[in-house]
Design a protein around this nucleic acid. Structure first.
Lengths: 158, 158
DNA sequence: GGCCCAAAGTTATATTGTATCATTCGCCCA
DNA sequence: TGGGCGAATGATACAATATAACTTTGGGCC
């Protein structure tokens, strides 16, 4: 699992990025899919902070080193990274966030602070079970779960 | 609470619409806010089905009877209806859905079928408590909860 | 060499959502 | 009683997000 840290606490973020990139390389290797330079660069850009980042922000960053970059360049990379479980899309913000649990089966659940913009991914089995139970009661077959809790993180509320 | 019905089962949908409009009028009256003709019309359009409807679909419909309608016309009406708790936005679809529990405090939780397009609003206190507990553990102050479960409803899976 | 395929390049456009300023209209009240 | 205020709407323009469709590149393989 590596060193887990809360997204809203100060930390040496380079370690987050390095860990994420290293894990992504390993996972793509294992799965025989290509973490191409563009895809890796986009992953790095998304991981530059714990704040969800918009596709066009990614594009702006990417274009600094990759002049040919266009919207499809970015969306293709984002789609790949999502498919491989390396990033998540935050639906309520139309933005993207590095996945801190890449390679581990989990539901994405987020705490999104409107003040500092940070989104923390949480893994709460009870919550996950509650989702499953609610779906089961309605005989609903789950394919994807979106849980996004917006508000104020402890630092911003305190 | 009135007659609750599952969105994915056949039913006389006119009753859904009539109930929703009647309740909306009552609530707006009580709150001294104006359910203007445009707002009521938009509410009716959103309620024409149990499938989330896009803002520009609403615009197309609205424009049939209201030639001056433009995007801001629709977004203003949608914003008003959301603020009054009469409709919900489905974030993962960028679309809007009538609220079946208008006037009653509740978290919006949805089961969204990718086959038939129907979204059913569910009210599951256990699930809601699980969200509260998860946030509390992180000392996170909740302002808004988004729960959208996508997959196949019982009719489409069966 | 020639074929195939995945990835990326390229151009154009679709979809969703806002900013901004002008206009209308009912209401209050000085 | 008319003038100002505010809520709602009209109107124009544009921003932000996302995809379609076709072309080109480049590596692996026969």
């Amino acid at each position: 699992m590596g060193a887990r840290r809360d997204a809203d606490k100060p930390h040496n973020h380079d370690a987050c990025i390095d860990t994420a990139i290293a894990r992504a390389r390993t996972l793509c290797e294992e799965r025989s899919v290509q973490l191409t330079p563009i895809r890796e660069k986009v992953l790095q850009i998304v991981w530059r902070s714990h704040k969800p980042v918009g596709a066009y922000q990614v594009l702006d960053e990417l274009a600094r080193t990759h002049k040919a970059a266009r919207p499809p360049t970015v969306y293709r990379a984002l789609d790949f990274l999502i498919a491989e479980g390396l990033i998540h899309k935050i639906e309520s913000l139309n933005a993207y966030l590095g996945c801190g649990e890449a390679g581990v089966a989990h539901t994405s659940q987020f705490l999104i602070c409107r003040a500092c913009g940070t989104a923390e991914e949480i893994v709460d089995p009870k919550l996950d079970q509650a989702l499953d139970a609610a779906a089961k009661r309605a005989r609903f077959t789950i394919e994807r779960k979106v849980v996004e809790i917006a508000g104020l993180c402890s630092r911003c509320a305190g």
